[in-house]
């Protein structure tokens, strides 16, 4: 654990809490993409399945449970409790265009199988390489789901950014949410540089997806600094 990872996690937590509080206090989820929030709930669910199989630290377990809980609470508020305020007409990004390619990519490019090995898996050539069945401890399935979550997280904010570009504005509090979410990614990039130099740790899948994700926020960061700091709303 280094300071960049810790502040990155806390920034991520801040973003999630800001969004929950905004919806709760204003009794409204206007301007919030429910689709992005469903994707984030899916990201946390598929990534933190290892809660069931491996223990890393109390901090790690606690944060995972909080992230999952908050993600589902947000989805509940948007689609159930404050459904009447949900702006579905402007939340028109086709989420399946993200989930399906990302799902395919996570089978093809992951830490457990090369595409050729994956071909052998689906052809069931090697029993040892079977994803499921007797003798399997689910680790390959978890690994593919982890990869899926990493890829999906990198693009999960797109419905939200699409919604903002469609309506042409965002409330200040929504921009704070996006700022902390982007800050978390930027801090994680520094964390990976740190870990590479001091621990020799290097996770190419996480790093490439993290770079993509951070790039998606760059345009928003620019607007945030130049507009939101000086005015009430984010005009585009």
């Amino acid at each position: 654990m280094n300071i960049f990872r810790l502040t990155g996690d806390l920034s991520h937590l801040a973003a999630i809490i800001i969004l929950l509080l905004k919806i709760w206090k204003t009794r409204s989820c206007a301007g919030i993409s429910g689709k992005s929030q469903i994707l984030f709930a899916l990201v946390f669910t598929t990534r933190y399945l290892d809660l069931l199989t491996s223990y890393i630290s109390l901090y790690n377990t606690f944060m995972k449970v909080v992230y999952i809980g908050c993600a589902y609470a947000t989805v509940y508020l948007i689609y159930m409790k404050f459904k009447a305020t949900y702006d579905g007409n402007h939340d028109t990004f086709r989420a399946e265009f993200l989930v399906v390619p990302v799902g395919g990519l996570s089978f093809l490019v992951n830490h457990d199988f090369t595409p050729l090995e994956f071909l052998l898996v689906i052809m069931y050539v090697s029993y040892d390489m079977a994803l499921c069945g007797p003798g399997s401890n689910c680790s390959h399935c978890f690994q593919i789901l982890w990869t899926f979550s990493i890829y999906l997280e990198s693009v999960a904010i797109l419905p939200q950014l699409f919604m903002i570009s469609k309506t042409g504005e965002a409330e200040t509090i929504t921009t704070h949410y996006l700022f902390f979410l982007g800050l978390y990614r930027a801090l994680y990039l520094i964390n990976w540089i740190w870990r590479f130099y001091f621990e020799g740790f290097f996770d190419l899948i996480a790093i490439v997806a993290g770079v993509v994700q951070t790039i998606l926020y760059c345009d928003f960061f620019y607007l945030y600094v130049t507009k939101v700091v000086y005015s009430e709303r984010l005009p585009l």
């Binding site: 990872r5 996690d9 991520h12 990534r47 290892d50 491996s54 890393i56 790690n60 944060m63 995972k64 992230y67 830490h111 457990d112 680790s139 978890f142 690994q143 982890w146 994680y188 964390n191 621990e199 020799g200 740790f201 290097f202 996770d203 996480a206």
Partner: peptide, 10 residues
């Protein structure tokens, strides 16, 4: 260390 099945980050 090339990360494989044990992921310690959030």
């Amino acid at each position: 260390i090339i990360a494989r099945t044990r992921h310690d980050e959030l």
